[in-house]
């Protein structure tokens, strides 16, 4: 049982990080960034490519390459996140729901297939040399095991969330973000650079997703071009579950979904693991669309 808890929390931290991206974008733009799951996937690939680049340039230094690889992954994913907004969403800002959503879906398809065609249709292994210390170091608690990686996943989510909270509450950029989310026109009138703020939101979400991506890459050991879709959908469910636009909600939602999945797997068998997320999604939307902690979206005209 404890093992279920541990596994669930580990997955949950990943969902939480990705969910933050969804929730922030929805809070500020009122649209679902369908392509966010692909940005997460790009973060995974960015990490492996980044580590590869470092190894080519510097040789095999474990910590250095890992850290640099993370930086490169974040930069890579953020770049894509920024480009996504700029190209596919900016023009459609005021438009009827159908337009940005279709554009987002199209973008998601483009990104997924691009990686499939550009890199490989099969799988890519995460270089074990760098992940081995994390996956092979573990502690035993009763009959359960916690690996160092799981602790790192949980801890980094915590640290990043705190960092995000500080950013949003205590910095100018955070205030700009909150203001734009609340009322875009008023914020513009107050002199807030709306376009830049929105871009920064995307970058922020993508950076978090990239960190999650690298960790999942190490956690699973293999990546594929379709690794983003499932995580994306579940993370979105998490965001909705916690209350869309609500940042603590997204984190809470992430952990709930992670735990629910592992609980279902443990009780009903893993055949039903994938269904858990969708069932929760439907239940939340039908019974309590506001989410657990309530949503925070600007009043849409």
């Amino acid at each position: 049982m404890l093992q279920v808890l541990i596994n669930g929390l580990a997955r949950g931290s990943v969902y939480a990080l990705v969910a933050l991206g969804y929730t922030m974008v929805y809070g500020i733009l009122g649209m679902i960034n369908f392509a966010h799951g692909e940005v997460f996937m790009l973060g995974m690939f960015g990490a492996v490519f980044g580590i590869g680049l470092c190894t080519t340039l510097f040789g095999s230094h474990l910590v250095l390459n890992l850290v640099l690889g993370l930086v490169l992954a974040v930069a890579f994913a953020s770049g894509w996140g920024w480009a996504n907004e700029r190209i596919a969403y900016r023009k459609l800002r005021g438009a009827n729901l159908l337009a940005p959503l279709s554009s987002a879906i199209g973008l998601s398809i483009v990104l997924q297939n691009f990686v499939m065609l550009a890199v490989t249709k099969g799988k890519v292994d995460f270089p074990h040399y760098y992940s081995d210390t994390l996956t092979k170091t573990f502690w035993t608690i009763g009959s359960a095991r916690v690996t160092l990686l799981q602790i790192v996943m949980f801890a980094s989510t915590g640290i990043l969330c705190l960092g995000l909270w500080w950013l949003i509450q205590k910095t100018r950029m955070g205030t700009a973000l909150r203001a734009t989310a609340q009322d875009r026109t008023a914020a513009a009138l107050m002199g807030i650079p709306v376009d830049k703020t929105i871009s920064r939101t995307f970058v922020l979400g993508s950076a978090l997703a990239a960190v999650a991506g690298m960790m999942v890459g190490m956690y699973q050991g293999v990546l594929a071009f379709d690794s983003g879709y499932a995580v994306g959908l579940k993370a979105f469910t998490a965001a909705v579950l916690g209350g869309i636009g609500n940042i603590p909600g997204a984190v809470l939602g992430g952990f709930v979904i992670g735990l629910a999945e592992d609980l279902t797997s443990s009780t009903l068998g893993s055949d039903w693991k994938q269904t858990t997320g969708f069932v929760i999604l439907i239940l939340v939307l039908v019974l309590r669309p506001r989410g657990i902690l309530g949503e925070r979206v600007s009043d849409k005209v």
Binding site: Q3, V4, N7, R11, S143, Y219, Q220, G221, V222, A224, D226, S227, A230, E261, D262, S265, S266, G269, S270, D271, K273, Q274
Partner: peptide, 20 residues
């Protein structure tokens, strides 16, 4: 005796069942 989705790459859930 369980099935996992063919794209699933995190099998820890079912592995916990196996260990148990």
């Amino acid at each position: 005796f369980e099935g996992v989705a063919s794209e699933e790459k995190d099998l820890r859930g079912v592995i916990a069942n196996i260990v148990k």
